[in-house]
Amino acid sequence: MSRVLQARGVVMTFRNGDEETEVLRGIDVALETGELVALVGASGSGKSTLLSILGLLLRPTAGEIEIAGQRVEGMSERARAAFRNQRLGFVFQFHHLLPDFSAMENVAFPAAAPAGGISPEMRRRALSLLDRVGLADRADFPATRLSGGQKQRVAIARALMNKPDLVIADEPTGNLDLRSAGQVLDLMEEVNREDGGTFLICTHDEHVAARCSRRIQLVDGRVQAQDEGSDHRD
């Protein structure tokens, strides 16, 4: 197994005028290819902040980060954007689909925008991803006409469009009912199992965390323990 992510000594301090909040106090995280990892911790413990940093959406105060073998701290904003596009996939609590586009177009968007259009090959991949998330028959539906769970599944397909090395998901089921949440999680598990996709999922949901292969617990800005997920199954 190769290492997808390696973060060392990640520190994040927010400054609001004179007031400083140290949210992350030296985090070390490593993810191997094909892992499905849950990031857990109390509300306000810094989970979203850490995901933003690992997803290159936020620059840490200190720390070294290596993703898919590349050091990312020194990259320019432009390079970080290109890196996010090529190497990372994002799923958020809210689907954030583009309302003026169809399900297929939403899925293809991350590939189409840099390339200047939806090529037949992109279209095929987008359709096969929609098929995989069980929405082949909804490909031409406008995003606004899908249900909440369907939208989130389209968002997952979109995150997978550019074959990312790592998918970062911040409470992907936080906004869904039990059944939809189950479907979304099944899907991520399936992609993880069949394609070897690597997932880092932040969640408050014990069911979700329990189905991951491993969990990382944040307490007071530090990683508390890195156990095998199976130890925590009840």
Partner: peptide, 16 residues
């Protein structure tokens, strides 16, 4: 704003 922000999150360029 939020749509554009999400495009930026996927790494779609400012030029686009």
């Amino acid at each position: 704003r939020s749509e554009v922000g999400i495009m930026r999150a996927f790494g779609i360029s400012g030029g686009f």
